[in-house]
Nucleic acid binder design. Sequence first.
DNA 1: AAAAGTCTGTTGTATTTACAACGAAAGCAG
DNA 2: CTGCTTTCGTTGTAAATACAACAGACTTTT
Lengths: 221, 221
Amino acid sequence: MKKYAALLKRTKLFSGVGENDILSMLHCLNTQVREYNKGEYAFRQGEYIRSLMILAVGRLHIQKEDYWGNLNILNEIRPGEMFGEAYIIPNSGTLMNDVVAIEESVVLFFDIDRILTVCSSACPFHTQLIKNLFYTISDKNKSLVQKISYMSQRSTREKLLSYLSDEAKRQNSNSFSIPFNRQQLADFLSVDRSAMSNELSKLRNEGMLDFHKNEFTLREL
Amino acid sequence: MKKYAALLKRTKLFSGVGENDILSMLHCLNTQVREYNKGEYAFRQGEYIRSLMILAVGRLHIQKEDYWGNLNILNEIRPGEMFGEAYIIPNSGTLMNDVVAIEESVVLFFDIDRILTVCSSACPFHTQLIKNLFYTISDKNKSLVQKISYMSQRSTREKLLSYLSDEAKRQNSNSFSIPFNRQQLADFLSVDRSAMSNELSKLRNEGMLDFHKNEFTLREL
DNA sequence: AAAAGTCTGTTGTATTTACAACGAAAGCAG
DNA sequence: CTGCTTTCGTTGTAAATACAACAGACTTTT
């Protein structure tokens, strides 16, 4: 378990907690370790989850098969990332997705009830952990809501403008850089890359914005 | 404050807590009450939020104006609903949206630090509150992720199939009813209603599914 | 420096979607 | 029952998108 303390120290969940304290908390949280071979399913649709998980080593895909058997990859989990935080509500249905190891992987399991129930005196960092958990989920929530606000725009143009508008606000400048290349931006907004490139060119021709690589500038009309 | 206890008892956040205990907790949480006139802004883009809010009376719109001034309504808040839970992360930027009262409204403010920091002994229901908060956000998270998984499908047909597929899974039957009428479903999936109706008819003609009003049945191929 | 590979913008075409309009069916009120 | 309103499916047309293909710019490798 000790070998994971350094990794955990850098995760959002254990942020602000020292390695020694993490070690004692791991015990308090009844932490389990499981390894998965490449291709192995960590969870299947329909299972109940009672833990919060952090991927220590490897890579996982959150994916879904529809009624007619079509596969759809929803998300890729990388080391240090937490997952399962949306599926531990009691009496509220089962996992809707499959979780598959696409590399040999190691997953840490934390008992959710031990996280949320403060043990009377043992863990001075328990309150910190709860705050971290809350902040992490809250932050994810915020990202999801924003993403939906872009995706719910009907046209590629509107999706681009709402995203770029928000980035300008967030970075507090009408000139800013984005953390995506074109393909990643297209995937993020759920549009076709070439159609998006085309639309960006139109917007530039119309004088609404300018860009070089990942640097964008919004113009007044 | 007493007059709000009955309302709060029915909210997700205070679920499982009796009215008398809610009253003592309201004090412990340093609850503030603010009223807004119709049309008044409760919050503006760029502000910092340090509280969790529950709407007691009225109706609010979460909305956004882009760089060029176009208005966009993201969400409508009704009495008993919590909001702001995604915007109270310390040091992580400001509010990206405006919150406007579209009717005369009353909002309750709860100090977020007092919720997350367990007061040594005073509140026996504090742990319950933390769990409720976690479950609420977690549940919202889950809904958001699912919605994104539908919206990220490229065509109306795929959006429909992924949503209906999930509902069949969730209700554990290939026959099920949905909580939307056609317009609401179209809004939820971010597609045009008439195009969606058209696509549903095609799917029925192709023998993939059947429907009468809000009752759907998925067919094997 | 040459070669191989990646990223981006552009174009043409087939497909899909948005929009407006309308009639039938269902639900509701007087 | 009658008239009014809402919901739903259908259709035609204009607009937008997906897809495939390709060329130039830029990177990385050899």
